[in-house]
Simulated scan of single mutants.
Amino acid sequence: MAELPEFYFRVRENGASVFRVDTENRHRRIEMHEIAMVNIRNGNIKAHGAHELTADETTAITQWMEARRALLKRRDLDDIHRTIDHLNETAHWAQSRADDEDLEDFTDRLLLAMHDLRSVLVRKKAERVNRDQSR
């Protein structure tokens, strides 16, 4: 049997609940003891109950937080690349297969979303250009 990790992170929307995994007990069962709550958005680590985090626990949690942030960033970027593909596929579908009823169902919502996205991208591009020119 593969060795279990020392810590288990139960992922939630803003971070995770952190558990210490214990297999060295008299019943030889897997036990998980909650030791902390983590918020990756603001970086807060709160010990659970009366538990006092050790330096090793804090280090493990911090490393997990860094890895989790990197994973979420990769997922965000992958979602953007998929969105570009979906927009291209949608354009092809709208031009080649959609009928008037299909188009009427989503055109206004899609145009508004695309207008909003274009406005944000143009503003951000202008900010980058202005920043680069002022250097």
Rank of each mutant, 00 (worst) to 15 (best):
M1R: 12
M1L: 13
L4G: 08
P5Q: 03
E6F: 11
E6K: 12
F7L: 14
Y8C: 07
R12M: 01
R12Y: 00
E13M: 15
N14P: 11
G15H: 02
S17A: 10
S17Y: 10
V21R: 03
E24V: 10
N25P: 11
N25Y: 05
R26T: 09
I30D: 07
I35M: 02
A36L: 04
M37S: 11
M37L: 13
V38W: 00
I40L: 05
I40F: 08
R41G: 14
G43N: 08
N44V: 11
I45W: 02
I45K: 03
H48F: 15
G49T: 10
A50C: 15
H51G: 01
L53D: 01
L53Q: 04
T54Q: 04
A55T: 09
A55R: 08
D56M: 00
T58Y: 04
T58G: 07
T58K: 08
I61F: 05
W64C: 05
M65A: 03
M65W: 02
M65S: 02
M65E: 02
A67C: 02
R68A: 08
L71R: 14
L72V: 01
L72N: 05
K73R: 11
R74V: 11
R75G: 06
D78E: 08
R82N: 14
D85T: 10
N88T: 04
N88W: 07
N88C: 07
E89C: 08
A91V: 09
W93Y: 09
R97V: 00
R97N: 00
D99E: 08
D100Q: 10
E101H: 06
D102G: 10
L103T: 04
R109F: 15
L111W: 00
M114Y: 06
D116V: 07
D116Y: 04
R118S: 05
V120R: 00
L121K: 07
V122T: 06
K124T: 01
K124W: 04
K124H: 07
K125G: 09
A126F: 04
R128W: 06
N130A: 15
R131S: 15
